[in-house]
Amino acid sequence: MNFSFLTPVSDAVLVHNELLSTHAIGRKIKIHSVQNGIPDLNGVKLAIFGVLENRNDANYIGEEINFNEIRQSFYGLFPASWNTTIVDLGDIHKGETVEDTYFAVKETITNLVKTGIIPIILGGSQDLTYPNYRAYDNLIPMVNIVNVDSQFNLGDSTKPIKNNSFVGKIILDQPYNLFNYATIGYQTYFNSQEEIDLMENLYFESYRLGAVSNDITLVEPALRDANIVSVDLSSVKGSEVSVKQKYSPNGLDGKEICAIARYAGISNKVSSFGVYEYRPSKDDELTSMLVAQMLWYFVEGVNCRVNDDDFLEDDNYQKYITLVESEELVFYKSNKTGRWWIEIPFLSNVNNKLKRHTLLPCMHQDYLDACNNELPERWYKALKKNSV
């Protein structure tokens, strides 16, 4: 595999690492260093790397970024009883152009995902989600993205890509591989009515901050169905982060963002996870520790994955069939985990994007709603997207 784009973790972080307890994460993971080069990736399940690129930030004024504080915070935490091997591959530096950086990110993620390694990306600006998405061009036919963000980032796709408009590029650039896009934690006053309407018209999913804070379990099915999870740190409320990172008095709190990270980890489909819009500053212990804890919960989730979506054996599930408005809805409940799915029917008369019966993650509440003659919203949107 070609990892020539990656530079080693800084000596300052490695020296700090030597002072940690021998039981700390930093003493148990493999680290790309100047002395030892890139570690052997045999048996590795998770690979962390940073991308020092923020030139497509709409407010870019030349700031440099680094992830030393995040690494020191993460290395200093203690692992749970994990059985996965983690590697820190170091950083991708800015290329001569942003497109050069995108190419390096795309190639690195493609190489990792192809070999069954889950990349954990630490970002600069969130437009890096675009090369993350493009990394899947030759890997899977359709991609689902979850964006944890206060804004939809649809933007004007006719203009150059920025961190507040990258989703428009993802939707409109060929090849068209996007099936579903879901935003978790959006705040209405940060989004124009045109963008809100567009999300509806494209049958994409959006979870308002109030609804998420009221019941965090609402977002689990969307994360269970995602291939890529992209987290914008500006979705976190200002009181949870350091001065330079503050964006809004309202937002997700530390427990909620860590719960979302754990849901992403538990998902059997999530194969890349990124945290973006990090802005280091001298008083940055708070933000770096929050990101470190998010990474911890994601790794914890990956270690708790259960293959519960195998419905070939009758013993693995219970099947429920209900009628809603003359539609026959078929639900499956895993006997291993108690998680629910709903079947999206094959539409023979249209250009079906998924080409087969597809099981869509859902909640027990969706089944209860169907029993009360209500069509589940996730099912309806998936069916509509499938027939566009």
Rank of each mutant, 00 (worst) to 15 (best):
N2W: 08
F5N: 15
S10F: 05
E18R: 03
E18A: 09
L19T: 14
S21F: 11
T22Y: 09
H23W: 05
K28R: 10
I29L: 14
H32E: 03
S33C: 07
V34H: 06
P39M: 11
D40N: 08
D40M: 09
D40S: 06
D40Y: 01
V44T: 12
K45A: 13
F49R: 00
F49P: 04
E53C: 00
N54V: 06
R55L: 04
N56M: 13
D57Y: 07
D57N: 09
N59C: 06
Y60T: 00
I61C: 11
E64R: 11
E69H: 09
G76M: 06
F78T: 07
A80E: 14
N83L: 12
T85M: 15
G90E: 08
D91T: 06
I92Y: 02
H93M: 15
H93L: 14
K94E: 15
E96N: 09
T97N: 09
D100N: 12
T101D: 06
F103A: 13
V105F: 07
K106E: 10
E107T: 14
T108F: 01
V113E: 07
V113P: 06
K114T: 01
G116D: 00
Y130P: 03
I140F: 03
P141L: 00
M142P: 01
N144M: 09
I145S: 00
V146G: 03
N147Y: 01
N147K: 03
F152A: 01
N153C: 08
L154M: 13
S157L: 14
S157E: 12
T158Y: 03
K162N: 10
S165G: 15
S165H: 02
N180I: 03
Y181L: 03
Y186H: 13
Y186W: 12
Y189R: 10
Y189P: 11
I196L: 07
D197V: 11
Y203F: 08
Y207G: 00
A211E: 15
V212I: 11
D215T: 13
V219E: 06
A222Y: 04
A222W: 01
L223H: 00
R224S: 08
I228V: 11
S230H: 04
S235R: 00
G238Y: 14
G238M: 02
S239Y: 13
E240A: 15
V243M: 12
K246Y: 02
P249Q: 02
D253V: 02
K255E: 13
C258M: 10
C258W: 01
C258F: 08
A261R: 06
R262N: 02
R262M: 14
Y263T: 10
Y263L: 07
K269F: 04
F273H: 01
Y278E: 10
L290C: 13
L290D: 07
V291C: 04
A292G: 01
Q293V: 06
F298D: 08
G301A: 05
R305N: 04
F311I: 04
D315N: 07
Q318I: 05
L323P: 07
E327Q: 06
E328R: 15
L329M: 07
L329N: 12
F331N: 09
Y332C: 00
K336N: 03
G338Q: 03
P345R: 10
L347A: 14
N352D: 15
T358N: 03
L360P: 07
C362R: 00
A370V: 03
A370W: 10
C371I: 10
C371Q: 13
E374S: 13
P376C: 05
P376L: 05
W379I: 11
Y380M: 12
K381L: 10
